[in-house]
């Protein structure tokens, strides 16, 4: 938990959580879950930068 809870997650109406399978297998059969987050239309502009920074950090070579 090197990263604190991002601002965009502090309101459940501001983001969506989508479960995907990276290997094309049916969800839950077998394998594990991957999640993708996206901002909703209700997300204020003030959290958009926070969201982008968080996604960028999670996709970087560093582990937080």
């Amino acid at each position: 938990m090197g990263m604190g809870m991002p601002e965009f997650m502090k309101n459940e109406e501001w983001y969506t959580e989508t479960k995907v399978d990276p290997f094309g297998d049916p969800i839950n059969n077998p394998g594990h879950n991957n999640y993708i987050w996206a901002l909703t239309d209700k997300a204020p502009d003030s959290v958009k930068k926070d969201f982008e920074e968080f996604v960028q950090a999670m996709n970087s070579d560093k582990d937080y």
Binding site: G2, A57, D61, D63, Y64
Partner: peptide
């Protein structure tokens, strides 16, 4: 370390 608590670096 940016905005984070900590970062582990490897590679």
């Amino acid at each position: 370390v940016a905005k984070s608590y900590a970062v582990t670096e490897w590679g």
